[in-house]
Write a protein that binds this DNA or RNA. Structure first.
Length: 310
DNA sequence: AGCTCTTCCTGAAAGC
DNA sequence: TGCTTTCAGGAAGAGC
């Protein structure tokens, strides 16, 4: 799943091979993940690629102005979100076309920038330069750029669960399920704890853990769980260093306890029950912890659904 | 404000 | 073995 480190890895790869080249044509397959496919296909050919940036989990490919009518005289940004299974790869146009490849940007040197996405949870749009500020404004801070004090301020007083806040792209941009779990493990914070219940020291620890985890993951060129590959088609290696994500039932690297998985904020959440103390439940002994839903057991809940609509 | 549920989609894994 | 069901998840929107 492409989160900040994976997107950063793709961006660094694209930055090495795209700038300076022109897009000469666009071919489209399925387009239901593109905001305005017609505009995309019409406005890109003839433009030269400038820089490539990462904005949270979005990839921003800058396109220079081109000759022609007035609307072509402004810079554009091709914005791509990889969703769950999106791949953005540069290769010779003669390479075989993998299944689920839906967008082809033909380059001026015989190569293509291709977008493939089996589940099509990704998103693609074109924005004029003037709208980029507003686009950034809708998102939270970059986790690797936000100062510790600002991070604390953003979370202080929030009663939502810390996991939900880490995943909220309006608070911080770029963190997803893997790195939220890994960071919380490193900071020894249970995912269901309320941000408001965390001391300044704990929040500083979390700020540091997030940086460590994200920077380590970028060094390993991201985590390849199912689909992720970089711009050259190569998988990352950080999945080998996961401490909790995908390790349910295995031993905690710190204390040996079995890693558990519960649903928090609607997301599968992995944690060590010993290192990451659960939130205090209101009444002791109730056995129920607020905000933690048990996983559905196999065989449970069968019937229902299929309420035939006639 | 914040939580849960639903929707989108497909391949893998589990279930029978 | 082989068909069927469930699940995973990023983000947005509905409803409570």
């Amino acid at each position: 799943m492409p989160e900040l480190p994976e997107v950063e890895t793709v961006v660094r790869g694209l930055r090495r091979v795209l700038p300076g080249h022109a897009i000469v044509g666009v071919r489209l397959g399925k387009t239901d993940f593109i905001d305005d496919p017609v505009a995309l296909a019409e406005s890109l050919p003839g433009r030269r690629i400038g820089g490539v940036q990462r904005v949270g989990k979005f990839i921003d490919v800058e396109l220079d102005p081109s000759e022609g009518p007035a609307e072509r005289a402004v810079p554009l940004h091709l914005i791509v979100h990889l969703g769950m299974t999106g791949r953005l790869v540069v290769c010779p146009a003669s390479d075989p076309i993998p299944l689920h490849t839906h967008v082809f940007f033909e380059l001026d040197d015989g190569r293509e920038l291709r977008y493939a996405d089996s589940r099509r949870f990704g998103r693609m749009l074109v924005l004029p330069d003037a709208m980029i500020r507003a686009f950034h404004g809708k998102l939270g801070e970059e986790p690797l750029e936000i100062p510790a004090a600002e991070f604390r301020k953003r979370l202080a007083g929030r009663h939502a669960r810390i996991k939900a806040l880490l995943l909220d792209q309006h608070v911080l941009r770029g963190i997803g399920n893997i790195y939220a779990d890994e960071s919380l493990w490193k900071a020894r914070i249970h995912p269901a704890r309320s941000a408001a219940g965390l001391s300044a020291q704990r929040l500083d620890g979390l700020w540091r853990a997030i940086r460590d985890v994200l920077q380590g993951a970028i060094r390993s060129r991201g985590s390849s769980i199912s689909d992720f590959v970089d711009a050259a088609g190569k998988p990352g290696e950080y999945q080998l260093r996961h401490r909790v994500y995908g390790r349910e039932g295995e031993a905690c690297h710190r204390c040996g306890s079995r890693i558990r998985r519960v649903i928090v904020a609607g997301r599968s959440s992995h944690f060590c029950p010993r290192c990451q103390a659960p939130p205090r439940s209101g009444r002791k002994g109730s056995g129920k912890r607020p905000g933690v839903r048990a996983l559905k057991m196999k065989g449970q809940h069968h019937a229902r659904r299929r309420a035939t609509r006639s």
